[in-house]
Design a protein around this nucleic acid. Structure first.
Lengths: 150, 150
DNA sequence: ACCTTTAAGTTGTACTATACAACCAGACCT
DNA sequence: AGGTCTGGTTGTATAGTACAACTTAAAGGT
């Protein structure tokens, strides 16, 4: 086996291990917001509101899945629906104050967890690791679709 | 925000994105074996058989979950149970020939997918990325438990 | 030796995330 | 106006998972 193969093997193994653990780890870190809910809220915050369809396209989720996720978040009072001015079919989803607070709280938890976990990494390594992850994820775009990235 | 914070932010975001996509991506890559089944089979192969309890401990899964996963793999003819010589309660799980073949096939698919995806990375980058992932995952050990790693 | 406790595994039950298909309602095109 | 497309909800099904109750066997204490 070449060095290259050994590296590939390690990358595959470690990413697999990470993937297996991630959801449960996130659930432990913030039981009040699943990884997906967290992501959806974060997206709403970042964009300042968008439609359910946009979320589905962006995250490659079925619209029914998004519909139910949003329904859950609305039930929790984290999201509100506003009529879309230009299209009566559509709704624009917005974070509520409560949703924003919760998101901020969870984001802070996550940030702290990462900060602590990576506390003994030096800055240059962090920077390179971040770069590699970006590069890896960027190569994920399903060929043939116009980068419905997620 | 410091450079360090920016890197942490990126790492967090990209790992989250990866985690969100991983299961579905694995399912697309090999529909016949979920990420968890794949991992369990790979573990059995690597160890040459072990008990269900060991799998549960290793992967931080409930024993009922493992029991059902194994039942499924047995139904598919990928795993067989052998009596444990030293403990009448226990069973030692082994890969069958069919299970080994399927695993090899899936592993080859995965290897190819990673190879292709990382085709334009140079060897040094692959090596560093692998090292970072190892280091990151190694820091995951839940404190207070004796490294029931997964 | 007996009784209690612990360990391995299964099964009942419940919940979450997800997909696909059927559907409804509004929009758009000709 | 009629047909088609699009945004969204709902019905249904599946996978993965956990927790609790249970069964059986092993281990330990007295």
């Amino acid at each position: 086996m070449t060095d290259r193969d050994a590296s590939l093997e390690t990358i595959q193994r470690e990413l697999t291990a990470f993937a297996r653990r991630a959801r449960a780890a996130a659930a432990r870190l913030h039981p009040e917001l699943s990884l997906v809910s967290y992501t959806l809220l974060a997206h709403l915050e970042e964009r300042g509101g968008c439609r359910a369809t946009d979320l589905a396209a962006h995250y490659l989720l079925d619209k029914s899945t998004v519909s139910r996720q949003i329904a859950g978040l609305e039930r929790l009072g984290f999201v509100e629906r506003r009529p879309a001015p230009e299209d009566q079919r559509a709704q624009v989803l917005h974070l509520t104050a409560r949703g924003g607070d919760t998101l901020a709280q969870v984001a802070a938890n996550r940030r702290d967890a990462f900060r602590e976990r990576l506390a003994d990494w030096d800055g240059a390594d962090l920077d390179r690791f971040a770069g590699y992850l970006l590069r890896y994820n960027a190569s994920n775009r399903t060929p043939g679709r116009r980068t419905p990235q997620a």
